[in-house]
Design a binder for these strands. Sequence first.
DNA 1: GGTCCAATGAAAAAATCTCTTCAAAAAAAC
DNA 2: GTTTTTTTGAAGAGATTTTTTCATTGGACC
Lengths: 292, 292
Amino acid sequence: MTVSDVIHAHFATLTRAEKQLAASLLDNYPVSGLGSITTVAENAGVSTPTVARMVQKLGFRGFPDFQARLHHELEATLSSPISKHDRWAANAPGTHILNRFADAIMNNLRQTLSQVETAEFNGASALLADRQRSIYIIGGRITKALADYLFTHLQVIRPHVTQIASNPSSWPHYVLNMKAGDVLVIFDIRRYEQEMETLGRIARERGVEIVLFTDQWASPVAKVAAKVFRVHIEAPSAWDSSVVTLFIVEALIEAVQSSGWEETSDRMKTLEGLFEASRLFRKPRPEVSGKS
Amino acid sequence: MTVSDVIHAHFATLTRAEKQLAASLLDNYPVSGLGSITTVAENAGVSTPTVARMVQKLGFRGFPDFQARLHHELEATLSSPISKHDRWAANAPGTHILNRFADAIMNNLRQTLSQVETAEFNGASALLADRQRSIYIIGGRITKALADYLFTHLQVIRPHVTQIASNPSSWPHYVLNMKAGDVLVIFDIRRYEQEMETLGRIARERGVEIVLFTDQWASPVAKVAAKVFRVHIEAPSAWDSSVVTLFIVEALIEAVQSSGWEETSDRMKTLEGLFEASRLFRKPRPEVSGKS
DNA sequence: GGTCCAATGAAAAAATCTCTTCAAAAAAAC
DNA sequence: GTTTTTTTGAAGAGATTTTTTCATTGGACC
């Protein structure tokens, strides 16, 4: 049982300052636990007694004992012939799904980023940041969650953001409102949905700028899109991975956000206020009753 | 220049006892240098003054300085294979948001994986794979998209999967249907929503097993959860990152899927058929008309 | 063999670290 | 809102570690 295991096992029973310390120890484990008790305490932002107390609570005879255990672990880790650094989840076998997935994601991320044009990214970010343009967002069956995520954030950052319902029969109503210069963000990953292409074409005809998130094989919508992100989505799974797509989405959100921070900041404060107000409307303790 | 390099560089000028000490340090480097000066001296079979003298001879300000250098090296070694990727998007400047984000995500991934218990992961996967148990999934304002993603996939993989609407007033209806042994997946990332804790507690009281996705500071729901994933969510942004959470979700989906591949495969084929059939019901070319 | 000098470790001094006590602050319970 | 309990860090006592001092050893050179 490693020190890390011990910390995890006791985590629930730790107090606030101790949790803070535990987090600091696990963060950059095990190096963060190597200095003197004073250093460890300072790094974690707690007092030395907290450190002394916690290691005893964890079952060690004292800080020196705790540290000796760390040294032994480190020795074991470092001296193993093929040192375990190439493993992600150190405590899982190399073939565990977590490690295989991590490898795949790393590859996807590296390949995607080596191909993405900074200009493309900046251009897309500028389109989404432009308050003159209305934004429409749509995703497919699987990518709906990503569209939803982008929508939830953009909605806070700026006005005039609309999420398009997945049901194609409702689309004409949205297209009706789009004007030239508006932006349509489409998520279309393989098993390309044919209606997407139609939607993209028609929007383009009306002068709408299209930002497309797709996979490396590129959805047919790419033909009419102003900005295209070709994301690598392979995973050791029957399903494609959306992790890297979400990565790009988040980076884009940040780019849009920072381009108009003043305004966004105001909007977020107002939103806080609204949340607060809506809380006041509720009953003090909203019981979720389980009685049958 | 590493400590090891320094020792080698000075090796010729060392005295007998110092050579003995140097050999001891290089043997099983760098762990042998981690203990107190007393321990190091004992292991090498020399006196403590020899150690103190030599490290000064090597150019360090004293034994603590020497040891601090070792710690830094260790830190770099332990994290390097993964994070030393200095630039992700080769064609973007190192400070471009894409590169800064990539660094942050890699850190999150590394730290999260080093902390996630394989047993915890396998346990959660087993819970979700058990066809005897019904699955309920709920997310907060931001994490709704993740809950949605998990739901969309699990729904294909197995029966009895329900997504809980975000409106707390509808929750009692869901709880009413939960029976002991059922599984409730909760996404609760900071700005923990208080109602989540209530929901978790009540579900737990009814014997429901809770799987929680939260951040490194742990939502209060953790107290009643059977399995907890504490994901690192830091990003160079005003928002938290959900990328690593999605990563875990996808790995979990794959784990659940592969545990019952036979059945899932059948279900997916049936689903294909249903998609096909539903297409036939529609008009041949569903025009998305833009006429106003 | 004798002298000298660098090298070494015992021992003490100085510095630092670890742990305990205790009072204040925070949280929880009432 | 008050009381009780728990948590927390400042301060200091005690232990340990690091450094320095210094006497001894062992080898080099005459």
